[in-house]
Amino acid sequence: MKFERYVWLSYVLLTLLAVLMVVPLVFMFTTSVKTLGDILSLQFRWVPREFTVENFTRVLQIMPFARYLYNTASIVAMTFLVQSITISLAAYAFARLRFKGRDLLFFLFLVQLMIPATSIIIPNYQTIRTLGILNRRLAVGIVYFASAYGTFLMRQAFRAVPRDLEDTAKIDGCNGPRVIRHVLLPLTKPSLIAFAFVSGTFHWNNFFWPLLVTDTVRARTLTVGLAMLTQATESTPEITITMAAAVMITAPLFMLFIVFQKPFIESFAGAGALKG
């Protein structure tokens, strides 16, 4: 029972702010289908004077979009796959096993949350160079192969699974890794999927680290390609083409978001589980 007065005021404020928030998105879409002449007329129109898809074909000419898409998708997939192994093994130990130094180790894991990869680009770049993997997709992903956030999330999930189920499996001769794979993970799928959403979004959108460790088409991601685009067009940045490219690199994730809006948002809300 919510007997609030002035609820209409909330509607008005929310709608107003929501419209403001959406302006950049609409601006991106509408600019991407405009002609340059329309922009240069100095008359801003929300609906283009004439629609064109030429900007998109131009992007495909200037930028090896398919290659960047392939690079990005494989980095996202590789990173998540390795992460799901490292985090479920570690989460199992932290949730179920008793050993010396467990709390200290768990604390050390959490320290990763305070030192984001972006803050240590200089030493990590050196490591990548020493390993001889500069300009490879592995260089983009490897820095993120361990995830304190994922470990924490899966530890919470494993803890909620009744121990009896594991004991039965163990009597049937399952060892630890098999218990994780065949008993725990199937039961905690929602948590792993939530982590997939968060990790996938982060790595799809990641920009600065891939920019530093890649310098040819071979390993560049979509976001890096977008930044290169404005540097390639030496003249005044061509607004229409850049916005078409922005639409193209944003679209895959964005469509996923529209279809799976609720689970997507819930996954990000799950980060709140980290408190306490």
Binding site: P24, W204, F207, V224, L226, A246, F254
Partner: peptide, 14 residues
Amino acid sequence: FYPTMIPMAAAAMI
């Protein structure tokens, strides 16, 4: 929430 889905690089361009 949708800006979370947009890469900062693209958002900065916009």
